[in-house]
Design a protein around this nucleic acid. Structure first.
Lengths: 237, 237
DNA sequence: AAAAATTATCTGGTCGGACCAGTTCAATTA
DNA sequence: TAATTGAACTGGTCCGACCAGATAATTTTT
């Protein structure tokens, strides 16, 4: 997901974060373990302590470590105290492969957030909303030959627009918070169903929104999610 | 929420972040506006450019600004592209007061996440789970005379434990991601209902989990949420 | 005069040394 | 042996130096 731009070289900090997060998530360090001091790591890696510290701060914000001031840096019980960035790190380590439990969790959240946003939008939509969604869909159709991730981004943006226009702006913030894992999801979704199917689905949503059919739109979302999950389950068998 | 520890003095970076986020959220800067350069701000504030840069990075991770390398720093359309940290910043600016739309959004999410976790836990719970939840509840009862935020933290942790023990660990990560706004919610909830009521509610949940009554537990959550929202609505009239 | 090329200035980006303040551990004293 | 003190260790913050690319201004060419 940090592959938005080609990055031939990682900075010292990025390399450090990548290295340590991999070590933690792969089990080399266990929750509660004390990591080597900043000075030790700086000397060992031949970089400045400030960079190490900055890297640790990043790892802390990712929920992977707990920095105890003046004492040391400890591996966090990240599956218990971690956050969405922890999930992103796990997904990154797995080469952006989502296990079915992650997918299920994402989709449950999505049903909650977008389901409500869809109903709200159906109730309050203007003709300008419909127009905008149609033009956004057309844009996506015109970009059909782009790369996977770019397309995935477009689908994310389309669905985010539902939240934006529903008047439930805080849902938008939540949705953005799941951005990285959502992109991984959309990439997989587009592989599974194909771009045509996915675009037709967008058009179905628009028709339902235009018709102010909140229940219909919600059901379309829910059934799409169920189908996807069923396919994932079948794939894993 | 950054009041976990007494912080009599803010670092230069913290002051900078606080100042700029307030300026953005209060409307002094509009989405799309270009902020003064790092050098200008550093000179104006009498601090180092690196600190300004570090502060801008923080503001970017909060979804409030967009850093265009070599070009400048621009105010983001944060209600559209922001994330949970944006929400935290908004709530912070409002003195940790939650508007009803934020509350509704949080509770919708919570119903989705914890609702499923409750059902899952009812299906898979062990007697050790029940024991642990009871002892956790007792701990909370023993701490009843603590400060509001500490109590709120305890309630957050209790509900998080539902996710942890449900086997849906990724829900835990999502829940942790909403930590700060959730604490604001719990503080308000405890003010509204009182600590005794809130603890009794926990015990009701445990009884239902013990009885493996997933539907009952979900309904208890849903009805609690409805009641809270109704009270909020009434307060605002 | 307009367009293209070059140069200068501006921008954010990264790094590491210097210094700070608190914690922990070892040595000394009572 | 327990308490105290000092040293060593820890993370925390800041800033100047330098880098690389974008943008604006100037010069050259058509």
């Amino acid at each position: 997901m940090n592959s938005a731009k080609k990055k031939p070289m990682l900075t010292n900090k990025e390399s450090f974060v990548k290295r340590v997060s991999r070590e933690i998530l792969s089990g080399k360090w266990k929750p509660g373990d004390k990591l080597p001091s900043e000075r030790e790591l700086a000397a060992e890696l031949g970089i400045g302590k400030t960079v190490v510290h900055s890297g640790f701060e990043k790892l802390a914000s990712m929920g992977l470590v707990h920095i105890k001031p003046k004492s040391g840096v400890f591996v966090a019980d990240y599956m218990k105290t971690g956050n969405i960035e922890t999930l992103n790190a796990i997904v990154n380590l797995n080469g952006n492969e989502l296990g079915s439990d992650i997918v299920a969790a994402i989709l449950d959240l999505r049903l909650a957030v977008e389901g409500l946003a869809l109903r709200a939008l159906c109730a309050c939509r203007s003709s300008e909303d419909i127009q905008y969604l149609r033009s956004l869909t057309k844009e996506i159709r015109d970009k059909s030959n782009c790369g996977e991730e770019e397309l995935a981004e477009q689908f994310f943006i389309w669905h985010r627009e539902i939240c934006i226009r529903s008047g439930k702006s805080f849902f938008t913030l939540f949705m953005n918070t799941t951005h990285d894992v959502s992109i991984a999801f959309w990439v997989n979704y587009l592989r599974m169903y194909g771009i045509s199917f996915a675009i037709n689905r967008l058009e179905q949503f628009i028709d339902l929104i235009e018709a102010r059919d909140g229940e219909g739109a919600y059901n379309l979302l829910a059934s799409g999610i169920s189908d996807y999950l069923a396919r994932i389950d079948k794939q894993e068998q």
